[in-house]
Design a protein around this nucleic acid. Structure first.
Lengths: 198, 198
DNA sequence: TGTACATCAGTGAACGCGCGTTCACTGATGTAC
DNA sequence: TGTACATCAGTGAACGCGCGTTCACTGATGTAC
């Protein structure tokens, strides 16, 4: 065995990381395999040693988000040991933040890829769904008590957060984008029973 | 003048209509000029008699939505003469309806195209923004009175409606899609001060 | 320890196809007389 | 009214490029002895 066993696995992760950034920024069709491999410091020919098709790479890149990004987020934006309403509020704050809006590469894939995914195959949709369920689950378990069922409120809150960011990204005017983000933010906080605050 | 003056204009509209349907369903990259022209009953060669580039067609197809679809919607879904809270509620009902979810061809372009647009040029973003402002304007002018500013509430409501549909379209499971749509719906109604009802 | 070898991660040329775009041409139409 | 003509909407072959995919090869590495 000429190379250490973990070598191939590490390279694979590196390719996936490049893919995640590029797909998130530019979408499925606009990213070439050459782009992905070059960002990983390799040449295009080796790609098929790691993945069978471009679509497989795409699905795995989305899935990778659920395993690596949440931790990065937690340490960057909020205390992972928090539980209950505080945690949910921190997620909302981080999700609808200016930093998250600006982070084209590392942002939540639900923001940059929904239309690509809606037209993609089952694998891709399943990966997308996994990300959504992670978010909804975090909300559902940590929302303050209220009249409506927790799951219903969690789903609506996810729609509001993702929708606000999707629209903000799609308009060209930074002022309107900021308005959208802030409107979604304060509405998310107040409708979940929190006072308005950063 | 061998052909009647309005002939070219009619053909142009027909091409735009085909483009709107196809782009809405499949996105920018996945639609070929040949597809569009074939759906309009023409061959690809003639395309450049009407548009300079594919991107120009894309932007105009989005814009066309603001001029032709709203009327179709109004007659199909609600009384266009309504004003005030009733109108806003009817828009929400129609937007988050099962019919709208199923209508891949004719649905609001904000649902199917956000990620394409976010990566597109200025023209495309301006066209997208026009659609958004139409929706926000309709909400802003017709929401029931409440504490928060009408514009802020209108923006958040738009984010909730679009976000709910975007997520519903992106997941493969019809049950989850229905949950998302209904959660967004009841949340939109209740947070705008209406009772839950169809 | 040093050397020959087998393995396999990575290379880069090449293939084939699809699509945006161009262009010379056709033929249906309204007009001039 | 009938006929020759000019116009221009629409055709379809062709071009060129980019990209996904394939494949024969290279060369760095760990192993056997």
């Amino acid at each position: 065995v000429p190379y250490p066993i973990e070598h191939k696995q590490q390279t694979r992760e590196r390719i996936l990381g490049s893919a995640r950034k590029l797909f998130n920024r530019k979408g499925f069709a606009e990213v070439t395999i050459d782009d992905v491999m070059a960002l990983a410091g390799l040449t295009h020919g080796g790609f098929y040693k790691y993945f069978d098709t471009k679509e497989e790479l795409y699905a795995e890149a989305i899935t990778q988000f659920t395993t690596c990004e949440p931790e990065k987020w937690q340490t960057a934006h909020f205390d992972p040991s928090a539980r209950g309403p505080d945690l949910a509020r921190m997620i909302v704050n981080a999700y609808l933040s200016q930093e998250h809006f600006d982070d084209r590469d590392g942002s939540c894939p639900m923001i940059g890829l929904p239309s690509d995914v809606a037209r993609g195959g089952e694998t891709v949709k399943a990966a997308y769904r996994q990300v959504l369920e992670m978010m909804v689950g975090a909300f559902e378990a940590n929302l303050p008590a209220a009249a409506a069922p927790a799951r219903e409120r969690a789903l609506a809150l996810a729609a509001l957060c993702v929708g606000g960011m999707v629209l903000a990204r799609a308009v060209d005017d930074p002022v309107l984008a900021g308005e959208l983000r802030k409107a979604a933010h304060s509405h998310a906080l107040s409708s979940s029973g929190w006072k308005e605050s950063a």
